[in-house]
Design a binder for these strands. Structure first.
Length: 229
DNA sequence: CCAGACGTTGTT
DNA sequence: GTCTGG
DNA sequence: CCAGACGTTGTT
DNA sequence: GTCTGG
């Protein structure tokens, strides 16, 4: 699963967004560095619609279907299982028409050790920016017509490194397919399905971090530091 | 995801 | 236990 | 044509 | 909103 992550590269190295996604620093959404980002927050999401370039905007981290009566979900849909989105029509349509990327610097998973929840940070040392594959949805207010965006992170089975801590992990897109993933012209179900892979653990780092991370009210850069043991 | 709350009626 | 809030 | 359906994940 | 069923 993926229920907590960090994003601060857009503050420290905004040029990464230009290089990877063609997004100039001036077009990044106003979002402070976040070291402890959880579900239901508004987070920066990268997406593309037909006839338009790649864009980034804030979306609420959950998924509210367009047909919902209110802008809230009665289910926990901040994650979407790869196994589900390829097998059910509702999700298949989103996979073909509403893919997005959550930019991130790492993700956290909790190990259950003697009844304690022990947080671990997973990251790619050589890469400041990670691209989580996700799905988004646009909901329109019935009266005002106001648009509200929401988005969900796709999950896949954990690779062996992550599996030592937790059985699921976010879909991480290899750099070479990021552009294809965002391209609204890509509708091949078979290719899309092939991209729902668990990113290998070989190049990933895993460090235990402070349990202060557990409380989402804590949000500072010390939370991503390896726990001194 | 984790943490923290979780209880009301009627009245002025 | 289960729901809500962040 | 209208009515009705359409949406979980992860945890122990 | 959009698709399916009757």
């Amino acid at each position: 699963m993926c229920g907590r992550y960090s994003l601060y590269t857009h503050i420290s190295h905004p040029e990464d967004f230009e290089e990877r996604f063609g997004l100039p620093a001036g077009e990044l959404p106003p979002f402070p560095a976040g070291y402890n980002i959880g579900p239901y927050r508004d987070v920066p999401v990268i997406f593309q619609t037909p006839g338009e370039g790649v864009r980034m905007r804030l979306m609420q981290w959950q998924l509210v279907p367009a047909f919902a009566k209110e802008f809230k979900s009665q289910y926990a849909m901040f994650n979407s299982r790869a196994e589900t989105i390829t097998s059910k029509p509702f999700w298949q349509r989103l996979l073909q028409n509403a893919r997005c990327i959550f930019p991130a610097n790492n993700f956290f998973e909790w190990a259950a050790v003697e009844g304690q929840k022990v947080p671990h940070k997973f990251y790619l040392p050589e890469q400041r920016l990670l691209a989580f594959g996700g799905l988004y949805s646009v909901w329109r207010h019935p009266e005002s017509g106001e648009e509200r965006y929401s988005a969900s992170i796709i999950t896949v089975p954990a690779n062996p490194l992550v599996a030592a801590v937790h059985p699921r992990m976010p879909l991480i897109l290899p750099r070479e397919i990021e552009q294809n993933w965002l391209d609204p012209a890509e509708r091949s179900f078979e290719r899309l399905q092939q991209w729902l892979q668990s990113f290998p653990g070989n190049d990933m780092g895993d460090v235990e971090v402070s349990p202060r991370l557990n409380n989402i009210k804590n949000d500072d850069s010390s939370l991503i530091e390896p726990l001194a043991s």
